[in-house]
């Protein structure tokens, strides 16, 4: 003898198409259906559950907003980001490594190779600067984003270039010594290429969540 609860579970599960895989024996299904045909309580319950299923479907069957244009804008943005040529990424990564190398050179006190004589304190500061620049280049090579980084790099590059030109004109430095700044200038040029050719993908979206819309927890 099958109890009413079991009958209701089997019949509604069958209605959902959930029986073939849940291991319910075919004989049990037949027994449940026969029971439902004879038991008015089960018939009434099954009928009510069917109405409720329908109510839920109807209740949530609003007109669906067409988000397609916005979705495809996301697609286009993601594609732009993904389409940065490998050569550009690799070049950025190479200058990042060069800047990191310069950082270690300053830390090791071997800046004299390029005519940069520094003490331990200044060497550490120069190393911090070179490492920061290296991180910016590496991040841009990785994610293709330039927004928020361009201003930082533009100031550094402009001041570096201005200082180099001034010192070369005044004869206070040599071209070889100034080669130490080449990775920064090349890296910034690559970032300009990325920004101009591929745009700057959006950052995290502010969805403007409204705290008054928090659903009630049962």
């Amino acid at each position: 003898m099958m109890d009413c609860n079991k009958v209701r579970e089997i019949v509604t599960s069958a209605r959902d198409g959930g029986l073939p895989t849940d291991g319910t024996p075919a004989g049990d299904v037949a027994i449940a259906l026969a029971h439902a045909g004879e038991c008015s309580s089960c018939a009434s319950w099954i009928d009510a559950s069917e109405r409720i299923d329908r109510s839920i479907r109807i209740g949530l069957a609003r007109e669906i907003p067409d988000l397609t244009p916005r979705i495809m804008a996301e697609w286009d943005s993601a594609r732009q980001q993904g389409d940065i040529p490998l050569t550009t990424r690799l070049s950025l990564m190479i200058v990042a490594v060069l800047n990191a190398g310069l950082a270690f050179m300053h830390l090791a006190g071997s800046g004299g190779l390029f005519g940069v004589q520094t003490g331990p304190h200044s060497g550490a500061e120069l190393a911090a600067f070179e490492l920061a620049v290296a991180v910016v280049f590496a991040m841009t090579a990785w994610d293709g984003r330039t927004r928020g980084r361009m201003a930082f790099m533009a100031v550094i590059s402009a001041l570096t270039l201005a200082g180099t030109v001034r010192d070369l004109v005044m004869g206070s430095t040599s071209l070889v010594a100034e080669m130490v700044h080449l990775p920064v200038l090349v890296g910034f040029s690559l970032m300009l290429i990325v920004a101009a050719a591929h745009g700057s993908p959006r950052g995290p979206r502010n969805l403007g969540y409204r705290s008054d819309a928090l659903p009630q927890t049962p």
Partner: peptide, 11 residues
């Protein structure tokens, strides 16, 4: 909430 549902769907 329809507005929030829009935002969730878009995200």
């Amino acid at each position: 909430d329809q507005e929030l549902a829009d935002e969730i769907a878009q995200e």
